[in-house]
Amino acid sequence: MIPRYQTILFSVLLLASVVMSVVLWQLRERAHQRLLVGQDSAPTQAPEVAPTVQATLMVANDADNSLLAQVQSLPLPLDPGTRARVVLGKLLDLYAASDAAHPVPGGASSVAQVFLLPVSNPDSETASSSSAPAAGRPNFENAKAVESSSSTAGSQARNPLQTGPELAVVNLTGAFAASHPSGLETETLTVLSICGTLHANLPRVTQVRFLVDGKPRATLAGHADLTRIYLADEAAPQP
């Protein structure tokens, strides 16, 4: 004979179990609904495919110390800064290939960012380039002047009305600089091919400055001077 209090206790526990099951079921349903709502808020539209355009890469060759223009069809974004990074990434991908004529490890990920800044005073640039370094490839502008202008010109860099000459600041990764083969020729070719490729695809880019991990660096891998601003349209080495 089951005592009465045990029957009541069993009934209460059974009732509690049923209630808890119902509550759990409802919680599960709510969680499921929340999940569905979350999925609905996720972007379901396919990413816009960038139009394929002809890009010119100035590809270096260690064997004869030359830069050869190579035209490739690449899907390039419209934003100039992003476009510059994509083009340089493709260039460095070529160098990272096993059969590259200018072997440099790293590939596309070696270009962290490319910033495009308007050249603040074209008149003064012309004057400076006609004096000391003249039309020679590297421009010996004081780097500090660029640093001061870059901080204020960042907002102007994306001005769609900007049509003047631009300075491209190429921020390379430290890993790229650390793994770059050391040598006058190979480092010079890397620098000049980047300058030439930028100018070929973004003609407004007339000057190029290099940073490594966001900071100025004396040389790329012990030789090529990275402290100065390079004139982008003078990329081809001349004998």
Binding site: A135, G183, E185
Partner: peptide, 15 residues
């Protein structure tokens, strides 16, 4: 250097 072939001669790129 180990890259390239033979002797590389470089003159300053200044004008």
């Amino acid at each position: 250097t180990e890259s390239g072939n033979g002797i590389h001669l470089f003159v300053s790129s200044m004008a």
